[in-house]
């Protein structure tokens, strides 16, 4: 299991290749890649702040919940921090299980948590200045599906 934050851009394809390598018994790997949106020019740069150590630990707790809830062989979460340009991958989640249902559901669960409650602070830099972003009602509703 791995939870990592990175300031550098990453390649989701390379991450998937590394994650799936050597898995002769896994059967199913599900992934999600989130990509920073330009919002039709409204967002020039997304700035994501984390609390190093604390953020990974809090995400790790949810990863443990996913492992308790679904029979997973492995999972990984890779999240960008710092300045992110539109079109760049911002988050990559991969889950490995014997069968697809557990892999799909755990990946979905992890993303709903990451989008709504993970310890990040997000700021959009656009032509009209800067603004801090909070989770949407939809983000909260998506997470509440798992309660």
């Amino acid at each position: 299991m791995s939870v990592r934050l990175t300031e550098a851009p990453f390649d989701p394809g390379a991450e998937l290749t590394a994650f799936t390598a050597g898995r002769t018994e896994t059967g199913a790997v599900a992934t999600f890649t989130g990509i920073a949106r330009a919002e039709a020019g409204a967002t020039a740069i997304l700035e994501l702040e984390a609390y190093p150590g604390f953020t990974e630990a809090e995400i790790g707790k949810i990863a443990q919940q996913a492992r308790a809830r679904w029979d997973l062989h492995d999972l990984m979460i890779l999240h960008r921090v710092g300045q992110i340009a539109p079109g760049e991958p911002i988050v990559f989640v991969a889950t490995a299980a014997s069968h697809r249902r557990a892999a799909f559901e755990a990946c979905d669960f992890l993303m709903d948590y990451l989008k709504s409650r993970a310890p990040f602070w997000k700021k959009e830099h656009g032509p009209d200045g800067r603004r801090w972003i909070e989770p949407t009602a939809q983000d909260h509703a998506d997470r509440d599906r798992w309660d």
């Binding site: 989130g34 994501l48 609390y51 604390f54 999240h79 911002i90 988050v91 990451l114 989008k115 709504s116 409650r117 993970a118 310890p119 990040f120 602070w121 997000k122 801090w132 972003i133 909070e134 989770p135 983000d139």
Partner: peptide, 10 residues
Amino acid sequence: VAFLPPMSGG
């Protein structure tokens, strides 16, 4: 000591 305003998620 860290003061953590409402978290925005990723």
